[in-house]
Design a protein around this nucleic acid. Sequence first.
DNA 1: CTGAAAGCGCTTACAG
DNA 2: CTGAAAGCGCTTACAG
Lengths: 354, 354
Amino acid sequence: MSTATVTLADVAVHAGVSKMTVSKVVNRKPGISEATRTRVLESVETLGYTVHASARALAAGRADTLGVLLPDLYSQYISEILRGSDEVALGAGQELLISTTRVRHEQRNIGRFSPGLVDGLLIVLPNSLQSYERALNTLRLPVVVIAPGEEEASENPQFPSVDADHYTGARLAMDHLLSLGHRRIGFISSTTHSAPSLKRLRGYREGLLTAGIALDRDLEATGDFTQQTGFRAARTLLALPEPPTAIFAINDVSAFGAIEAVKDWGLRVPEDVSVIGFDDIPQASQVYPPLTTIRQPLLEMGAAGTRQLLNLIHGVGAVSDTLILPTELIVRSSTGPCPISTDSSHPDRAGRPM
Amino acid sequence: MSTATVTLADVAVHAGVSKMTVSKVVNRKPGISEATRTRVLESVETLGYTVHASARALAAGRADTLGVLLPDLYSQYISEILRGSDEVALGAGQELLISTTRVRHEQRNIGRFSPGLVDGLLIVLPNSLQSYERALNTLRLPVVVIAPGEEEASENPQFPSVDADHYTGARLAMDHLLSLGHRRIGFISSTTHSAPSLKRLRGYREGLLTAGIALDRDLEATGDFTQQTGFRAARTLLALPEPPTAIFAINDVSAFGAIEAVKDWGLRVPEDVSVIGFDDIPQASQVYPPLTTIRQPLLEMGAAGTRQLLNLIHGVGAVSDTLILPTELIVRSSTGPCPISTDSSHPDRAGRPM
DNA sequence: CTGAAAGCGCTTACAG
DNA sequence: CTGAAAGCGCTTACAG
């Protein structure tokens, strides 16, 4: 437990070689005889030598470390993004240094990712990117933004970014519901006017219009991405004179609340009301019934963002200023055929036996 | 966006002072005239100077940074611990550097917290501490272990640790249920034989025995801390010839599954079956009905662990080798009086109107 | 109130 | 295959 630092020089003396030789051995560089390598490694082991990260970073001019700024640490999607990022980082011999937002300490949040500590910064929204801008500009560090899309606008021309295709995802959700024969479809939206939210809303509306169904503002209930508001919004929809047979929730967590509300109302999912979410967080497959949802490629987004950052650091430049990754329909058990055969002109799956 | 580094020397030249003076200004040290301070600060602003973290750490001999090793990033309790830790760290002028476990990369997990990067390490279990031991010993860094207690033994004599009082917490849960008139109480346990799990189980059993109720192994259903297994375990209990009127789940997430199972079974919480959890994760107050639970002082544990680590780093020594923090009963709406008046000798709240 | 010098522990061309 | 020297950007006693 002694904090006495063992240095490269100590190892060199112990092994009877130069510091440079020890450095080469420790860094697995070629051009060292097997005999000296063994001897040095023994000394390293005996003395318990560990490289001093700061000294290495200072001398080498790079930290081989990527900073990751996270909005919080409990949103399910965070870990998925991180997993993707970690994979790429590991493959590139980079470490990941994670920091999470301290409310009202935006400047410091960025500040701790000073040069010498990290070579680049990956910022995962949501967060007011604006509040970071000043700090970011002083920092002069390569930056890539990942926008999984709940609370913040994703179009920011200042930094390369990675986003999911929210609009097409919403259309996929609607097509699924429509193909099941649903005509009266509710939407649980959000209070924020962020780009991803608006895109999902647009997907909902245009999906309806494309199918020749008139919009009904009563079918759009407002939530704020939480289970609680999802519950309440669904309740509002169920209380309608003509309630929906399907509900499209803006995110999985809202969908969980909606399922709860349907059950609480004495109805069954999906027999009476179908529910579809958006995101495909790990929990989506674990709830009862397992949630049909639109998968946001979180892992891939983390990986792609990290690759972009690596390119930026190595001076290759970002592959593209804003990368849009495709979303995907994941059919599980929370959606089923429309219980009301309102329209016999819909052949699709409506008449298919389950 | 230029990565060209502006150094202390550049600022010194620009401001027409020595490097030392710039250093003092930047580090807010006394003994600088207001005039030079202003001039230096202007140069810093103009040139966009940022301190080089590694150079500072190398020269100063300390990084003013604490490493935090986390088991994962999606368990609800993690963020609470971190919040407590962050508060203390911020107050002590320390930064937090978070890293999360890479499966089968334990050595590297520790390795990236090399001296020069961090001054000490906070390890949040669960995780096989054993797999870290070798790396930890080579590292020679002060270490404190926080054991919020789901999957790993918390008694490890090698490092100072912070833990919650699991046994007393479980007794609190049982006393609450018993005082509501429940006599037939089920327990959703875990598969792991970790110290915290065993303590909670012991609290369940001894609570029963103390109340003069014989143990019934059928009332102990096994889960593994997940909502899914909580659901299944509760189902098993409800299917019993003589089902319980109350269920004590080993953690909140299991309790969520239990509530789901009770509803799914066509019964109500708490009118027909009471459910109590353990942990008090943020979600506990947001589910429906809000969960009665035993609060584990996660925030305080993070804070206390960080204080211990700071003491260790400053050579003060840990306040205590293992700190046990108290747990607390949080009454919400998932528990109520026993619906069956089996025993009129129990006055408590059984006969109270709701 | 201000500064010249040494040194933190490492890596990087450059020689041999 | 091996090494002596310079230097990365900063802080720390120590003088003045």
